[in-house]
Design a protein around this nucleic acid. Structure first.
Length: 300
DNA sequence: CGGATTTGACCGCT
DNA sequence: AGCGGTCAAATCCG
């Protein structure tokens, strides 16, 4: 909350500066500062939304109810432990994003570096293209519900990677999205084949904040596996419908149960350290909220 | 050697 | 027609 206030104050300061230097400003400079001001207040508003949603979820948690808060239009909200960590990592220290130019550069290089990889294009063009006679099977676009979360990038280590959310994902595509500065990456559950797990997610950096990922989850996990490769004890597909689930099913509550398992009993994975979950005060989950996918697309 | 990633092509949808 | 999501061969990597 203090952070929201500080952003608002920052915006007010910008307004003041603009006011005082208004007469001598060129139209270009005016436009620039107006942009900055608009962005600052929009940011504050976004974060305020997060705070509100989180308040609701805290109430729900206190009553040991599902950590799901119904938003308008039946969108669901969920807190994921891994994401909390990201929040801490990002906002545990300073709230401003200055002094991060180097990291930004690194991220951009990493993203653009994909194209720099030398590949044998000759084989590619001949191989997978028009020559294939067997028509691909393609499912229709699933109209199931989506859950979109904003996640802070890790400040330490490899900031190029999307934050760990205690599930293992396998990347299956990446696309440049019109009007977006950064490509969108497509992931599906690593255990899709083993357990017919339909979970997918899309990860994309925000245009105006490369340190924040927009993560869109589709489908829910039926595999009940965390972080690492399946183990004999962990790989128990308990869901009775596990084998019958298809992508025609929209999001169900499996995701929540996955998460509840993780929160209550700790992660089965080796890499996840749950110590961060509820540090002394002010629970660190201010950074998730859900939006309706068809509106509020701030990336454009 | 097998699983994960990369990346151009393919295809459904608007 | 073009965008976005997915496929799958090639490639990478442990």
């Amino acid at each position: 909350m203090e952070e929201v206030m500080s952003i608002i104050f920052h915006g007010l300061k910008l307004v003041d500066e603009l006011k005082s230097s208004l007469p001598e400003k060129s139209p270009e400079a005016l436009s620039t500062s107006l942009d900055e001001i608009t962005k600052t207040f929009a940011d504050a508003k976004e974060r305020l939304k997060i705070v509100l949603v989180i308040r609701n979820s805290e109430t729900a948690m206190n009553q040991l109810k599902p950590v799901i808060v119904a938003c308008s239009d039946q969108m669901l909200m969920q807190i994921e432990p891994g994401l909390m960590q990201d929040y801490w990592l990002r906002y545990g220290g300073s709230t401003s994003s200055q002094g991060t130019e180097a990291m930004t550069q690194r991220q951009l290089m990493a993203v653009e570096g994909d194209g720099g990889r030398n590949l044998t294009a000759t084989e590619r063009s001949g191989g997978s293209g028009s020559g294939s006679s067997t028509p691909r099977q393609r499912r229709r676009k699933n109209e199931g519900e989506e859950q979109t979360v904003l996640v802070a990038a890790l400040r330490s280590g490899n900031t190029d990677l999307p934050p760990d959310d205690n599930h293992t994902w396998r990347k299956y595509g990446q696309k440049e999205i019109l009007g977006s500065r950064y490509p969108r990456a497509y992931y599906r559950c690593t255990h899709q084949k083993l357990y017919n797990c339909p979970a997918k997610k899309q990860v994309q950096r925000l245009n105006d904040d490369p340190f924040t990922f927009r993560v869109t989850y589709r489908g829910s996990h039926t595999c009940h596996i965390y972080s690492t490769a399946p183990t004999a004890s962990a790989a128990v597909p308990t869901a009775p419908t596990a084998t019958t689930v298809t992508t025609s099913h929209p999001v169900d509550y499996g995701t929540f149960f996955d998460m509840a398992d993780a929160m209550m009993f700790g992660s089965g994975g080796t890499g996840a350290n749950m110590d961060f979950m509820f540090p002394s005060n002010d629970p660190p989950h201010h950074h998730h909220y859900y939006r309706r996918p068809e509106e509020g697309d701030g990336d454009k």
